[in-house]
């Protein structure tokens, strides 16, 4: 309750200082619209449905791409951690591709898939898959070998050991890898949407892009605020419960 008040109070303070800066008329209102103008844009965009529509399109792309990345990234990470051969092939590939900024995938995706949803998904997956894979691999390697030994004396073997011991034991790493992967996916999708017009759906990145084209600073700032809000919400809804659970179980919480 108290922390909620602090967060709200801070937000009010930020908006108030923004308003004050606007009233000082240091910059032209074209470059820095006041909070009210941005609020009006947002209200109008919500009313005519563009904002809602764009958010839906963007989050759909993001969620599909992201969950595909997890679906492949975690098992592949287990694979590279388990088998030397996978480590020397797939592991090295992942390490290499992870260093490639995901914006660099956009030209290739466009040539391969054209201006389609496929291109968007491809960029999102390439952005997050490798970091999830590497985090999983890393997590598995830090699992104390005694866990698997103890499990084996209780009759646990191969697959059972992996699912019931190695995987949960590396969960703290996997969750932080998933969080990082989420960040990468979000970034690559925004880059892709700003960079290319996709005929099948108009996302938040496009709104931002057209805000620039139209010189509509209220739109640019408004959409940026929406993007920030989605990022915050995702963190709270997708990751906070997991992290709280892990901290409680492992005893790594600060208080």
């Amino acid at each position: 309750m108290k922390r909620g008040l602090v967060v709200c109070g801070f937000a009010v303070l930020m908006i108030a200082s923004w308003e004050i800066v606007c009233r000082l008329k240091i910059w032209s209102p074209v470059l820095l619209p006041n909070p009210l103008a941005v609020g009006e844009y947002l209200a109008q965009a919500i009313r005519d449905g563009t904002l809602w529509q764009a958010t839906l399109v963007t989050t759909k792309r993001l969620l599909i791409g992201y969950f595909l990345s997890i679906l492949f990234g975690v098992p592949l990470g287990l694979l590279t951690a388990r088998f030397k051969f996978a480590e020397d092939t797939l592991g090295v590939l992942a390490l290499g591709l992870q260093t490639l900024p995901s914006v660099c995938w956009i030209p290739l995706a466009l040539l391969w898939y054209g201006q389609t949803e496929g291109a968007m998904l491809f960029v999102v997956i390439m952005g997050s898959l490798w970091s999830i894979l590497i985090a999983t691999d890393n997590g598995v390697r830090t699992v104390p070998p005694i866990y698997a030994r103890a499990a084996s004396t209780m009759g646990s073997k191969n697959f059972h050991t992996w699912i019931k011991v190695i995987l949960p034991a590396s969960l703290p790493f996997i969750v932080s890898g998933m969080k990082q992967g989420w960040g990468f996916a979000w970034r690559s999708l925004m880059a892709a949407e700003i960079y290319v017009t996709i005929l099948t759906g108009f996302g938040l990145g496009h709104l931002l892009h057209y805000g620039r084209e139209l010189n509509a600073m209220d739109q640019v700032i408004g959409v940026m605020l929406v993007i920030i809000t989605i990022g915050l919400l995702a963190d709270k809804i997708l990751f906070s419960p997991w992290e709280k659970f892990l901290h409680r179980r492992w005893g790594t919480a600060r208080n």
């Binding site: 005694i146 030994r149 103890a150 004396t153 209780m154 034991a169 969960l171 179980r249 492992w250 005893g251």
Partner: peptide
């Protein structure tokens, strides 16, 4: 030939699993 439930081991470190209660 391998570990079995007939012979259980207790280690110096408890080796309990932190993800389970």
């Amino acid at each position: 030939t391998g570990p079995g439930r007939e012979r259980m081991v207790m280690f110096q470190e408890s080796a309990l699993f932190p993800w389970l209660d």
